[in-house]
Amino acid sequence: MTDAALAPDRPTMLPRLYAGAAIVVLWELVVRGFAPSYVATPFGIAMALPRVLADATFLKATAITLGAVAEGLVIALAIGTVLGLLIGRSLVADRALRHYVNACYAVPMIVVLPLVSLWFGYTGAARLATIVFAASFSIAVNVADGARAVPRDYLEVAHSFRSSEGRALFEIVLPASMPYFLAGLRLAAGRALIAAVVAEFFTAIPGLGYFILYNSRVFRHNDAFVAVLLLGGFGVGFDALVNYATRRYLPWYRRADGDN
């Protein structure tokens, strides 16, 4: 049942493939016909791909950026979960913090860059701080929504079995908020990636963002585009990973509502 339900149907796959092919062909033709020779084309990117993927600078940049994103996400996860649970379950915390968290969530993360680069210098720490700032609040906002939406029935059961408030928070509220948490995590991953690249653009520290910036400036657009594709692939891949983990480890989620 799972495979059939999860694999997209053939009829919906075909238009997607045709559209993709059409975009690639159109891109190739338009650039060849009207743009300067250094502009990236699908063919040029394909040709650059083996060389770039074997390039030590590129590999190092990839490791640095994705490493920073992973590290930032772990920190954001901790901050966002704690903040979210607090706001969602404590009236005092909600009143005190909710608007500030919402404000931080709404503020474009780029605006903090000049500030963090002053505090941390033009270093990896500035990038990490930007990632954490960008990612934490989307998790906090979602977890808070989830924690608020926990069915009272569950909490009544916990209370009846003499659970302490603290245990109920981690054993009932947190798992019950899991769907919201995952939604927040997916948003956070996208924002973390943007934050990492923008921080590298701004502070010119090594990483994929800087790789793109540098290669664009020296007119190696095909090379730069390999990094763009990699970042896009990372975003899609992370989404797929979260989806897979959800099906594998949270089988009750998505089905719990429909069947009961």
């Binding site: 029935d153 569950y154 916990a158 009846s160 245990r167 009750w252 719990a256």
Partner: peptide
Amino acid sequence: AVVFQHFGLFPWKTVYDNVAYGLRM
């Protein structure tokens, strides 16, 4: 112990873990 009309089972727990819940608490 209470048996609820709405069952009050935790959807993220298996039968085993649901039954064990009260004992763990």
